[in-house]
Amino acid sequence: MNLTFWNVRGLNKSSKQQLVKHHMLQYHASFLSLLETKIKGSLLPVVAKKIANSWSWISNAGVSGKARIFILWDTKILDAQVIASSDQHITCLVKSLDDLLECVISSVYGHNHVEGRKALWTDLMQINHNIGDVPWLLCGDFNAMINCDEKLGGSALTEADTVYSKLKMLKVALKGLNKKHFHNISEQVQRARLTLENVQEKL
């Protein structure tokens, strides 16, 4: 079972639709998450039929007018139920029909600007809170950079636009977490080593 997440940067042209179909067949994909499709909601059934005639599909065109995210899956292999969506993500509970896979999959296409992405981070934190211990696959295009060197063209990024700046804000919280739960980790490792040596001596 193969899952594909792809920023196609437009899916209105027949040639791009054929490329996606070729990819799906070549890699035996059973789940396709296509981002930045720019397809009008009214055209989605036609495009879905061209790519994967018998598959089910969902999009967020109802929220944004055009499908920013377009997900297709093979119903002979998977069942997918939407548990949350917005103009920046579609989150599904995905189960394989053979019961070997059950996970939450969030397909993300974030807004270009920091302010626009704040709602996305809020949604993702809420999803994390709600899903409990179910494995969560979080994929897509967050339109967020680790550092300014990753960006080519367009308007310049500020330090505040980068993921690095977000991680710096977590530093204090992570230090507190580390102190609370891992402050004596070397002692714990030493105790575990002694226990292991004792067990080995008895063998």
Results as ranks from 00 to 15, higher is better:
53 N>S: 11
27 Y>D: 07
16 K>Y: 02
179 K>S: 11
76 K>Q: 14
166 K>N: 13
140 G>S: 01
71 I>G: 01
50 K>W: 13
20 V>P: 07
72 L>G: 03
153 G>P: 09
93 L>T: 05
201 E>C: 12
133 D>V: 09
176 G>K: 13
71 I>A: 03
104 V>Y: 08
19 L>A: 15
64 S>Q: 07
72 L>H: 01
163 V>L: 15
200 Q>C: 13
94 V>P: 00
134 V>E: 06
47 V>C: 05
182 F>G: 09
167 L>I: 15
92 C>M: 15
7 N>S: 02
69 I>F: 05
79 D>P: 09
163 V>Q: 01
10 G>S: 02
116 G>W: 00
77 I>H: 12
190 Q>N: 08
93 L>H: 11
148 C>A: 14
36 E>I: 10
135 P>M: 02
147 N>W: 10
168 K>H: 10
48 A>Q: 00
53 N>T: 06
22 H>V: 09
166 K>Q: 12
94 V>Y: 05
61 A>K: 08
103 C>A: 13
48 A>C: 07
36 E>R: 07
9 R>A: 10
70 F>L: 11
124 L>D: 03
73 W>F: 03
66 K>D: 04
139 C>T: 05
44 L>A: 03
113 H>I: 11
4 T>N: 04
186 S>D: 13
105 I>E: 04
101 L>D: 14
57 W>D: 04
54 S>C: 05
72 L>I: 09
6 W>N: 10
53 N>L: 08
65 G>A: 11
166 K>T: 04
100 L>R: 14
144 A>R: 06
98 D>H: 00
138 L>N: 06
174 L>H: 14
8 V>L: 03
111 H>E: 10
36 E>Y: 08
13 K>F: 11
170 L>P: 01
12 N>D: 09
102 E>V: 12
39 I>H: 06
167 L>F: 12
178 N>Q: 10
162 T>E: 03
106 S>I: 02
126 Q>E: 14
150 E>C: 06
10 G>K: 00
111 H>M: 07
110 G>E: 00
141 D>V: 10
79 D>F: 13
35 L>F: 08
19 L>I: 04
114 V>W: 12
107 S>K: 01
183 H>C: 14
173 A>R: 15
142 F>A: 00
178 N>S: 15
160 A>I: 00
64 S>W: 04
116 G>Q: 05
76 K>H: 13
80 A>G: 15
169 M>L: 14
175 K>G: 09
107 S>Q: 09
52 A>R: 02
167 L>T: 07
161 D>L: 10
200 Q>W: 14
155 S>K: 15
98 D>P: 02
58 I>Q: 01
130 N>I: 00
111 H>W: 01
102 E>T: 14
89 H>C: 08
34 L>P: 00
86 S>C: 09
28 H>R: 14
165 S>W: 05
16 K>L: 02
173 A>G: 11
197 E>A: 12
96 S>T: 07
25 L>K: 15
39 I>K: 00
199 V>E: 09
127 I>M: 12
136 W>A: 11
74 D>F: 09
115 E>K: 04
68 R>H: 09
53 N>Y: 13
43 L>R: 15
1 M>T: 13
98 D>W: 01
184 N>C: 12
